[in-house]
C-alpha cells in the first residue's frame, strides 16, 4: 500500500511535471511529438496514486513481493523504452544532418562551377 504522504507527493510531482513540460512545449523548446510519452507516463502514475489497489493487484499478477518494487521495475522499463526511442530518433537525425551537409557542400561546388563559367 502506498503511504498517504507519498501519494500526495507523487500527485504534486506529476502535476508540476505536466505544467513545466507544457511550458517548454509552448516555448517550442520541446516538440509535442516527443513529449506525448511523458504525458502518458504521468497519467499512469496518477492512476496508480489514485487507485493504490491497482498497484497491489498488478504486483500480485507479476509475482512481485512489494508493490514499491514493482513500481521501480515498471519505472525502469518505461524509462529504458523512452531512452531507446530517443536513441533511435537521434540516430535518424544525425543521418539527416549528414545528408544535409553533403547536399550543401555539393551545391556550393555547383554554384562555384556556375559562377566560374559566367566569368569566362
Amino acid at each position: 500500500m502506498l503511504d498517504f504522504r507519498i501519494r500526495i507527493m507523487a500527485i504534486a510531482v506529476v502535476i508540476l511535471g505536466f505544467i513545466s513540460l507544457t511550458g517548454l512545449i509552448k516555448q517550442k523548446k520541446v516538440e509535442l511529438k516527443y513529449a506525448l510519452v511523458w504525458y502518458g507516463a504521468g497519467v499512469v502514475i496518477l492512476i496508480f496514486t489514485l487507485f493504490p489497489k491497482l498497484m497491489d493487484g498488478l504486483s500480485h499478477l507479476l509475482g512481485i513481493a512489494t508493490p514499491v518494487n514493482m513500481l521501480f521495475m515498471l519505472a525502469i522499463i518505461v524509462l529504458s523504452a523512452i531512452v531507446m526511442e530517443l536513441t533511435a530518433v537521434l540516430s535518424a537525425m544525425s543521418q539527416r544532418v549528414r545528408k544535409l551537409v553533403q547536399e550543401v557542400a555539393l551545391l556550393r561546388d555547383e554554384l562555384q562551377q556556375a559562377s566560374e563559367k559566367t566569368h569566362e
Partner: peptide
C-alpha cells in the same frame, strides 16, 4: 491525440 493536444497548446 496529438492534434488535440497541439490545438490546446497552440491556443495557450
Amino acid at each position: 491525440i496529438k492534434v488535440s493536444m497541439a490545438i490546446i497548446v497552440e491556443g495557450q
